[in-house]
Design a binder for these strands. Structure first.
Length: 488
RNA sequence: GGUCUUGUGGCCGAGUGGCUAGGCACCAGUCUGCAAAACUGUGUACAGCGGUUCGAAUCCGCUCGAGACCUCCA
């Protein structure tokens, strides 16, 4: 479809380098991204990862790939707390909110779907749930046991890291060495069923207070944290697919253990390219529940968080996030958000000018080169910040054309216009010019501005300024240009 | 302690060894009834020290600082 199709480079966490992207099957891409655990409402930091992978998904689509994008929903699973004890976080939330586990999951899933709509995320091809794939998880565990990489103790099943590392390399993704892990035997207490510190649960025997319990060949229990991703990625994308993504904090142990499970069960690394999105910071520190420095995606749109003194539109937030590379940290501050808000509005204004430009027989600048720079930026490991810098170059040109200082031909204008739409709305997922389309307000504004124009023609500045100031107080900005007065 | 990332002008943030990143803010000017917007011009930025090189923000070493993971986390 696109001539820029074959030039994409992706930073692969496995190699630590940018690599030419060559899908396993021509023109088709399989992508799996670790989704949310629905025991609470996702915070802004969680959303950053999903927004980044949404951008990645969107660009792959623009390049003409047929993409199968799978993002799971974790609605079950045994998780260990800081003391090393088994603890079901969903069950815990359920007890605290006096609901059943399924109610908790459903409640936060509804919320999550709403957030996806607010932040303009494209729905993935499939959003499979862990609880819907218990049988597949059990089958994987059985395979791993049969291959000799897991053992059963008291109704639980553990992955045998030492056995595994005789044949495969444990730590290939995170750079950890099994020998070094061995030195950290401090937390291995006498009651622990694990043979080795780094062994991890594939299946965990049920506790009496567990709210969700499933039957298995090893007795009633819950699946381990990592096995659901192995089961679901295999089911929908096969044993080996193109891209596996997630937040940086999942690199170890979650993704490392996924690799071990996949190798242990199917003999291969699940993904060719591993991608990790960086964290969202607040005042230099990772946003997290435990630090309490988090806010909810809805709060910032409503302006109800104490961290910021005004609300920001979801598109401004998205724009702000896109100004930082997905592999970089990003700090949320009022100053940075205000700058993004103004910048986005400048870009929007320029785009909305496109329809009003007058065309010439020739263009005074190279439109093809400009458009090409959009692809170049994105082909370099999805460099959205550079793309935005190039979009601002386009905005500058549009303004100059509008001022009669540059010219553009009809064909070039069509090309530029089409590609701005592709990159701003299709790739970055930003919505432009949706604010002043209120059908009732529009005729009122036309009338008000007509009255003001009459006052101006009569040099009645008192009246015209009163109208302008009054509108400003109501949040409507009036701009006088050569072509007439506009408002927003 | 181990593994890894990182330190860019007032703020945010790209950066392939040599060619203006970009945005916001600031200053001056053009335009305008005034404003806003738009346009133009203006910034001796690359933590510190040393090394490689004709040339380093970019490569190497050391020092200092920051962060992530090693326990649930996007």
């Amino acid at each position: 479809m696109s001539s820029h199709h074959g030039n994409l480079k992706i930073y692969n966490s496995l190699s630590g380098q940018k690599e030419k992207f060559e899908p396993l099957h021509e023109n088709r891409v399989g992508m799996y991204v670790c989704g949310p655990t629905l025991y609470s409402e996702p915070h802004m930091g969680n959303m950053r990862t999903f927004i980044n992978f949404d951008m990645i998904y969107r660009y792959l689509l623009v390049l003409g790939y047929q993409v199968k994008y799978v993002r799971n929903i974790t609605d079950a699973g045994h998780i260990t707390n800081s003391l090393g004890e088994a603890e079901d976080s969903i069950g815990k939330a359920a007890r605290m909110e006096q609901m059943q586990s399924l109610e908790i999951v459903y409640k936060y899933n509804v919320k999550f779907q709403e957030l996806q709509r607010i932040y303009n995320l494209l729905p993935p091809s499939i959003e499979p749930t862990a609880t819907g794939h218990i049988q597949e998880q059990i089958e994987h565990i059985e395979k791993i046991i049969n291959n000799g990489f897991a053992y059963v103790v008291n109704g639980s099943v553990y992955f045998d890291v030492k056995k595994y590392s005789e044949k495969f390399e444990y730590g290939i993704l995170s750079g950890r060495k099994v020998d070094e892990l061995a030195e950290e035997t401090r937390t291995l207490n006498a009651q622990d069923e694990k043979r080795f510190f780094a062994d991890f649960a594939l299946w965990k025997k049920a506790n009496p207070e567990d709210m969700q319990i499933w039957r298995s060949p090893w007795g009633d229990g819950n699946p381990g944290w990592h096995i659901e991703c192995t089961a679901m990625s295999t089911k929908y994308l096969g044993p080996h697919f193109d891209i596996h993504g997630g937040g940086m904090d999942l690199k170890f142990p979650h993704h490392e253990d996924e690799i071990a499970q996949n190798c242990g069960s199917l003999g291969c690394n699940p993904a060719k390219y591993w991608m990790h999105a960086n964290m969202l910071n607040v005042n230099g520190q990772k946003m997290s529940k435990s630090l309490g420095n988090y806010f909810l995606p809805q709060e910032i749109v409503e302006g109800s968080t104490e961290l910021f003194d005004k609300p920001y539109s979801p598109d401004v937030i998205r724009f702000f996030m896109m100004q930082a590379h997905y592999r970089s940290n990003l700090d949320f501050t009022s100053d940075a958000l205000n700058a993004a808000e103004k910048g986005f509005s400048r870009l929007s204004d320029a785009v909305m000018l496109l329809d009003k430009l007058t065309v010439a027989t020739n263009s005074s600048f190279n439109v093809g080169e400009l458009v090409s720079s959009f692809y170049t930026a994105m082909n370099d490991d999805f460099n959205a910040p550079t793309l935005i810098a190039n979009l601002f170059e386009a905005a500058k040109k549009i303004n100059l054309i509008n001022d009669g200082k540059e010219t553009i031909s009809k064909d070039d204008l069509n090309i530029l216009s089409a590609h701005l739409t592709i990159f701003i709305s299709d790739v970055l997922g930003l919505r432009i010019g949706t604010s002043n389309s209120d059908s009732k307000l529009s005729p009122v504004m036309d009338l008000v501005l007509e009255l003001r124009q009459q006052a101006r023609e009569n040099k009645d500045w008192t009246t015209s300024d009163k109208i302008r100031d009054g509108l400003a107080a109501a949040g409507i900005v009036v701009k006088d240009t050569k072509e007439g007065t506009s408002w927003s």
